[in-house]
């Protein structure tokens, strides 16, 4: 106990001494500068502006010194010193709390993901493989919307915030487009899968009845007809129209966002952007229309 007290007293003395020395050093430096070579007699403009600059620097240095003096006087008093030392001794504790909090956050996030992964298994009905895949797409979309998408929508700060926002939005639209394409391709591949199954059943039936054709072309014709039938059924379904519509919308959204980012980049170069050109095209179109109408009127007279 005594040792600790002695140790503390030693540290206190050391800090107080250092503060005193530092204050004296910077104080004398400031005084030396203030009494430096007299340039007030200089008559030319350069000397005058130099004096003005030196004066401004000196002023800001003195103001900084004042702040330092005020702080050091507070820190030198015994209560202030004690508080600082407590802070220094408490550093490992603060660090460990910080690490603990970060780890907890990560662990919680991981648990959330695990829970979602568990839900994927729970909502899938046994032997219904179509539902399994569709659920997977729906859950991925939900997971993306709730867990990942938010990161791309964190409010951006500072001078470049609008540019950052546009990049974030483009990444977001690209991810959505990729998900929709995957879903669309999955739906599009279903007739292929089904036609193989139907074909196998048909072949089993034919084999049992001893009616298997001996020409390989006949098998192909049979399969292509089944496949065509499946595609036609799928294409007439509202689910397909919906999936196709969503994929197209996602593609268009991504294209619009991407073009905005490209326009940001092009803005740095002497190159007209798509928007510039479209405005120009519109003006040309309207002018041409007017000229043609006038020309027509003139000939009709």
């Amino acid at each position: 106990m005594n040792e600790t007290k002695q140790e503390n007293t030693g540290t206190e003395t050391l800090l107080a001494t250092w503060l005193k020395t530092a204050t004296e050093f910077w104080g004398s430096m400031a005084r030396t500068w203030a009494n430096g070579p007299d340039i007030s007699a200089a008559s030319d403009t350069a000397a005058a502006s130099e004096k003005e600059a030196a004066g401004r620097t000196q002023e800001s240095l003195q103001s900084a010194l004042k702040t330092w003096l005020a702080l050091s006087s507070v820190m030198s008093d015994p209560e202030g010193l004690e508080a600082q030392l407590k802070g220094v001794h408490g550093l490992p504790e603060v660090l460990s709390r910080l690490v603990q909090s970060g780890w907890d956050g990560f662990f919680q996030l991981q648990q959330q993901w695990l829970q979602r992964a568990e839900r994927i298994g729970k909502t899938t009905e046994a032997y219904k493989f179509e539902n399994l895949d569709q659920n997977a797409f729906a859950l991925w979309n939900e997971l993306y919307e709730k867990e990942f998408r938010q990161f791309l929508h964190i409010p951006q700060l500072g001078l470049t915030r609008f540019y950052q926002e546009r990049v974030g939005r483009t990444v977001d639209k690209f991810n959505i487009f990729q998900a929709k394409v995957a879903e669309f391709l999955h739906i599009f591949s279903l007739p292929m899968e089904k036609s193989h199954k139907v074909m196998q059943d048909k072949l089993t039936e034919m084999a049992e009845a001893g009616e298997l054709p001996d020409d390989s072309k006949a098998y192909y014709q049979m399969w292509i007809k089944i496949l065509e039938g499946h595609f036609m059924t799928l294409f007439k379904s509202p689910e397909f129209a919906n999936a196709m519509g969503q994929t197209l919308n996602a593609l268009e959204d991504y294209k619009i966002s991407q073009e905005k980012v490209i326009e940001d980049i092009l803005g740095m170069f002497p190159v007209p952007t798509q928007t510039d050109m479209d405005e120009l095209y519109k003006e040309i179109y309207l002018l041409k229309k007017k000229v043609k109408a006038l020309e027509k009127k003139k000939f009709e007279r």
Partner: peptide, 20 residues
Amino acid sequence: GLLHIWMKALDVDRMVDAFG
């Protein structure tokens, strides 16, 4: 015709705005 079914579901404004 399928074209008639699909066209009804098409968001043509978004498409033209995106592609020109």
